[in-house]
C-alpha cells in the first residue's frame, strides 16, 4: 500500500509538473502571439531632423529669477553642435547689467545715510557698495534632447518643438566696487596685536572688504524648449542654474563679526533665457 501510495503521489506530481510545463512547451512550439505590424516600427516616420548634425547659434537674453539683492539682465550667445538627434555639446557666454531688487530698495530707504561706527547697522554706502554684480557668466555643457513633437495653436498653427536638458560646468566673473574709504579694515576678524590685550579685532563687519569679486567656476544645469518657426529658426526658452560660490551681499554671513572667505557659500543663480536659434545648415533632412 505504501508503495502504491508513493507511486500515486509520484504520478500526481509528474502530472502536475507536466501540466505546468505544457503551456511553456506549447508556447515555444506555437507561432508567437499576434502583434501589431507597427510594434517594431519607429514612433514617427518622415520626421524632420531639425537638430541632428546641425550647428545652433542662439543670440539670447537672460534674466535672473527671484534674485535676492540684485537682478541681472543680460545678452549673450549660445553655440551648440548637435552630434545626433538627441545629444549635443555647446557653450554660452552672457554679459549682464544689474538692477536692485525691491528688497534692496526697501532696505536702503531705511539705512543711516552716513557711516557711524558706533552703531551696528551699515550705512547706505556700506550696504550697497558691498553688493556684487555678475558682469560675465557662461557655461559649457552636454545636452540631451529626449522629447520632440509638434503642437497646434488654436487648431491652426502647427509647429515643431523639442525639450532639452543640459548639464556641465559654469563660470562667472563677480565684481564689487567697495571704496577704500568704506571697506577700510586691513585685517578683518584678526587681532592686529595679539600680545597687546588692549588691541583687538574691531568686530565690525561693515568696514570689511566684501571678498565677493573675481572668477568663480561652478556647475551648470539647464532645461528648455525649442519652438521651431521654420526649418532653421527656433524660439529658444530655457531655465538655467549657474551654481558657484558667492556671497552676494558681501556681508558677514556666518555671524563671526568679520567678512572672510568662509562667508561665501555654494549658491544657485537661476536665470530664464529667451533667444532665437539659427540652425546651420539651413536645409533639413527627414527620417525614412
Amino acid at each position: 500500500m505504501k508503495n502504491q501510495s508513493f507511486t500515486s503521489v509520484t504520478l500526481a506530481g509528474l502530472f502536475a509538473a507536466t501540466a505546468l510545463l505544457i503551456p511553456s512547451v506549447a508556447s515555444a512550439d506555437d507561432p508567437p502571439p499576434r502583434r501589431s505590424a507597427l510594434d517594431e516600427q519607429p514612433a514617427v516616420r518622415h520626421r524632420l531632423l531639425l537638430v541632428a548634425k546641425r550647428l545652433e547659434a542662439t543670440p539670447m537674453f537672460e534674466s535672473t529669477i527671484n534674485a535676492d539683492f540684485r537682478h541681472f539682465i543680460g545678452a549673450g550667445l549660445k553655440l551648440e553642435y548637435h552630434l545626433g538627434d538627441m545629444f549635443s555639446i555647446g557653450g554660452m557666454i552672457v554679459g549682464s547689467t544689474s538692477l536692485d531688487t525691491k528688497l534692496t530698495k526697501r532696505v536702503v530707504e531705511t539705512l543711516e545715510p552716513d557711516v557711524n561706527n558706533m552703531t551696528r547697522e551699515p550705512s547706505v554706502q556700506e550696504f550697497t557698495q558691498r553688493l556684487n554684480t555678475i558682469p560675465l557668466h557662461g557655461s559649457i555643457y552636454a545636452s540631451l534632447t529626449p522629447w520632440y513633437g509638434k503642437m497646434a495653436a488654436f487648431g491652426k498653427a502647427y509647429v515643431n518643438f523639442d525639450f532639452y536638458f543640459q548639464a556641465g560646468l559654469s563660470f562667472a566673473t563677480l565684481k564689487s566696487d567697495c571704496a577704500s574709504s568704506i571697506c577700510n579694515d586691513p585685517m578683518p576678524g584678526i587681532d592686529p596685536a595679539p600680545a597687546d590685550p588692549l588691541v583687538n579685532a574691531d568686530d565690525n563687519p561693515n568696514n570689511d572688504p566684501p571678498l565677493n569679486s573675481g572668477f568663480r567656476p561652478g556647475l551648470y544645469l539647464g532645461g528648455g524648449i525649442h519652438v521651431f518657426i521654420n526649418e532653421f529658426l527656433a524660439l529658444d526658452l530655457a531655465i538655467r542654474d549657474y551654481a558657484f560660490k558667492d556671497n552676494p551681499s558681501g556681508a558677514d554671513f556666518n555671524a563671526d563679526l568679520a567678512v572672510q572667505d568662509d562667508d561665501s557659500r555654494f549658491l544657485h543663480h537661476l536665470f530664464v533665457g529667451v533667444g532665437v536659434s539659427v540652425m546651420v545648415p539651413f536645409k533639413v533632412k527627414r527620417t525614412r
Partner: peptide, 11 residues
Amino acid sequence: PVYGKFAILDQ
C-alpha cells in the same frame, strides 16, 4: 488653445 504630441526617446 494649444494641443500637441511628442515622442520620448523616439519610442
